[in-house]
């Protein structure tokens, strides 16, 4: 009698032949290797998964993974991933992109992904700037206000040469408010923790958002590796992620950012299961002949 052991995939099995086009020192390298580890830990079959991305430095990630990928247009990761998951619930669907892609041009899709709660893992590589277009203010940039009178670096932040006139958004607090069913934050320079967060996000049934601080060494000299090393702390073990108020309280401290799983809503209904129920209710009853007969002129 022989038993077939389940096929195991090592992190290396997920590596494609394409070399990443990112700048040396880019935080996204850390995200990519943490993703390899997480996929391996979860035993995800690379032929049965799709990575969907938008446009931006980080959105080039699907090409660097030996799996199916969909590098789409700016900001549309979530609708594309939702349609894919709805049509193919058997696939593991992972969305990736940057803070501009996910919170600015694509920001309108997030609350709707939250209320649909499809089983998709969304990894945002948050570098607090637009890297691909060479360093403009993003919705998560933390720039001095015009009124502060602070001088800006003349080589960077060229769309806000006198400082910013807008506040930044807090994706974690926003996600908790929208009841995204798994909300976490990682840091690309804490690779083991990041891989663990990714693995938990992939295993989570429902929509998960992991916002990862992924510093841009080329265009953001403020939110650097060192900046985040001194401004982050691990989510305390006493934190109960199912306590929404506690999660919100934890997220809104903007001097010191918690790393780890901040919020979870495990039993939240999801569109994929609901659609499966619907198909099951009418299973095999579709008949075009009968449909046409309903319109018969009598």
């Amino acid at each position: 009698m022989s038993t077939t052991a389940p096929v195991q995939f090592t992190p290396k099995d997920y590596k494609s032949d394409l070399a990443p086009i990112w700048c040396p020192g880019c935080g996204d390298f850390g995200v990519l290797s943490a993703l390899f580890k997480a996929l391996s830990a979860c035993g995800v079959d690379p032929t049965k998964m799709v990575i969907v991305s938008g446009i931006g430095c980080s959105s080039r990630l699907p090409g660097f993974v030996a799996t199916y990928g969909f590098h789409s247009v700016h900001g549309r990761v979530l609708p594309i991933a939702t349609g894919l998951k709805a049509a193919r619930p058997d696939l593991t669907v992972i969305g990736v992109g940057g803070d501009g892609d996910g919170y600015s041009i694509g920001g309108g899709h997030l609350p709707h992904a939250a209320r649909r709660n499809p089983d998709i893992t969304y990894l945002v590589m948050n570098n607090n700037t637009y890297g691909l277009t060479k360093g403009q203010v993003s919705p998560t940039s933390m720039l001095p206000l015009v009124s502060s009178g602070q001088k800006m670096d003349p080589k960077r932040w060229k769309t806000t040469p006198y400082g910013t006139t807008e506040d930044s958004i807090d994706p974690i607090a926003q996600a908790i408010a929208w009841d995204i069913s798994f909300v976490a934050r990682g840091f690309s320079y804490k690779p083991n923790q990041l891989a663990d967060i990714f693995a938990q996000a992939i295993r989570h049934k429902g929509f998960s958002l992991v916002d990862t601080f992924s510093p841009c060494p080329t265009f953001n000299q403020e939110q650097t590796e060192e900046f985040y090393k001194s401004r982050t702390f691990d989510v305390p073990e006493t934190h109960d992620p199912t306590d929404r108020s506690a999660a919100f309280a934890l997220s809104v401290n903007h001097d010191n950012y918690p790393l780890g799983i901040i919020y979870k809503h495990d039993d939240k209904p999801n569109i994929i299961d609901e659609q499966a129920h619907l198909r099951a209710r009418f299973d095999g009853q579709g008949s075009l002949q009968e449909l046409l007969a309903r319109f018969a002129a009598k």
């Binding site: 969907v52 969909f70 609708p79 594309i80 939702t82 349609g83 894919l84 049509a87 899709h109 709707h112």
Partner: peptide, 16 residues
């Protein structure tokens, strides 16, 4: 949630 998302969903499903 809008026509952009509507077509995006279709592209995802069709890719599938």
């Amino acid at each position: 949630e809008d026509e952009i998302a509507a077509l995006g969903m279709c592209l995802g499903a069709s890719f599938g």
